[in-house]
């Protein structure tokens, strides 16, 4: 299968710190590719370069058959790059429904419409409700997003990403700060999303990684030290020493 997203030779420095060290990896259609690595390995920095919020110093990013390295974050999103942030990023003063409807609106024609009440646009609201139902937070639709619990905010974040109908999803630690029960439910949800969206999953939760990933890449000090199936990574000595060892 062909790669929807591919990175080659990506390099990024923060001053003297090499955070992304000649990283190459790809994400194929229908695949979940997990990126694991210790704290500070540069996983979030990698995601930000993919989303376009950070500019790499060198290397190229291809998405959906085109080079997008020079494109702004919003142009990449328009092309179908969807993401969730490690640090919850929602519109706190909007209702839960409006947060998701805002995402649905991004894919639904022009937003240079100055008249007509957007709150009454049925199609947008229906699509938003569908995404909320998928995440099981439809009963929170009218609540203020800023008032949700942490776990609910994480679910909202994912609902927003889905409602924008992306071609791929980049997820930066979707389970961060969640309880066991919430995590298990989210793993099940992601499992069902896998069929529709190629996932690039950055995650510390090994249960999630081994349940979801088709391939795993291990990032240490900005460098990919191993890529393989979950089983291969589990038995890879270098990867264990660098990362899995800490966990056990």
């Amino acid at each position: 299968m062909s790669a929807v997203l591919s990175i080659s030779g990506l390099t990024k420095r923060f001053g003297a710190l090499l955070v992304t060290d000649d990283v190459s990896l790809d994400l194929k259609a229908g695949e979940c590719h997990a990126v694991i690595g210790p704290n500070g390995a540069g996983k979030t920095t990698l995601i930000h370069q993919l989303s376009g919020t950070l500019k790499p110093d060198a290397g190229a990013i291809h998405f959906d058959g085109q080079e997008v390295t020079a494109l702004s974050a919003y142009a990449r999103a328009r092309r179908g790059l969807g993401l969730t942030f490690q640090i919850t990023s929602i519109i706190p003063g909007f209702s839960v429904l409006e947060n998701v409807a805002l995402a649905a609106q991004a894919k639904d024609g022009s937003s240079y419409r100055f008249f007509g009440s957007v709150a009454r646009e049925r199609r947008l609201n229906e699509r938003a409700m569908a995404a909320l139902e998928l995440l099981g937070i439809e009963d929170r639709a009218q609540r203020l997003a800023g008032d949700l619990s942490h776990g609910e905010k994480r679910a909202l974040e994912l609902a927003v990403a889905i409602a924008s109908q992306p071609k791929v999803l980049l997820l930066d630690e979707p389970m961060a700060g969640m309880g066991r029960k919430e995590s298990a439910a989210l793993i099940a949800t992601l499992q069902s999303l896998k069929a529709d969206y190629p996932l690039l999953l950055v995650e510390h939760d090994m249960d999630a990684v081994f349940a979801l990933a088709d391939r795993v890449s291990v990032l240490v000090y900005g460098k990919i030290i191993a890529t393989g199936t979950p089983e291969e990574i589990r038995s890879n000595a270098e990867a264990r020493a660098a990362y899995l060892g800490e966990e056990a």
Binding site: L83, S89, A106, S111, V118
Partner: peptide
């Protein structure tokens, strides 16, 4: 309107609105 919604959202969280396209 649609336009107003995006404007209001960007006031609260510009980065998120940009990454939505």
């Amino acid at each position: 309107s649609r336009f107003g919604r995006v404007l209001r959202a960007a006031k609260q969280n510009e980065a998120r609105v940009e990454t939505l396209g």
